[in-house]
Design a protein around this nucleic acid. Structure first.
Length: 124
DNA sequence: GTTCTCACA
DNA sequence: TGTGAGTA
């Protein structure tokens, strides 16, 4: 099972693939990196290589931004996400889906959007 | 051909 | 955030 988590972290996707998967421009993807929102690996030729987790993160950043969140907020949010994922791996108590909903709920709250008792929050 | 960094009539 | 320049 740690196998799946490991594969998701393999940085093998080139910029073109990530662009297609996220519908973001190369410019935006690189910019988010300067904002410490994603940390792609580099190959021998200094080309960025993204993992499935990176793509996932980029997608989260995308709608986080759409919800009016700023980079600082998302950075803080991801620091928590790491804790959530670690806990998940250690205790095996949370499924990937559940962790994702947790993240989304937090995004909503931090963004000061919908009240915490609506939608996502209830399904947790 | 693709991606990288840097810079901005 | 887009785009063009000059590379690797």
């Amino acid at each position: 099972m740690a196998e799946k988590q490991l594969r998701r972290s393999l940085a093998i996707l080139p910029m073109s693939t990530v662009m297609a998967l996220t519908d973001l421009s190369a410019r935006q993807i690189r910019y988010y990196e300067t904002q410490a929102l994603v940390h792609p690996a580099r190959n021998e030729g200094n080309r960025r290589r993204y993992s499935l987790n990176d793509v996932d993160r980029l997608l989260e950043v995308k709608d986080g931004l759409a919800s009016g969140m700023d980079f600082a907020t998302m950075r803080r949010l991801y620091a928590k996400t790491h804790q959530v994922e670690s806990t998940q791996l250690e205790s095996k108590r949370l499924s990937d889906e559940r962790a994702r909903h947790l993240l989304e709920a937090e995004m909503q709250q931090l963004a000061g959007m919908r009240p915490p008792q609506s939608g996502l929050q209830q399904r947790l």
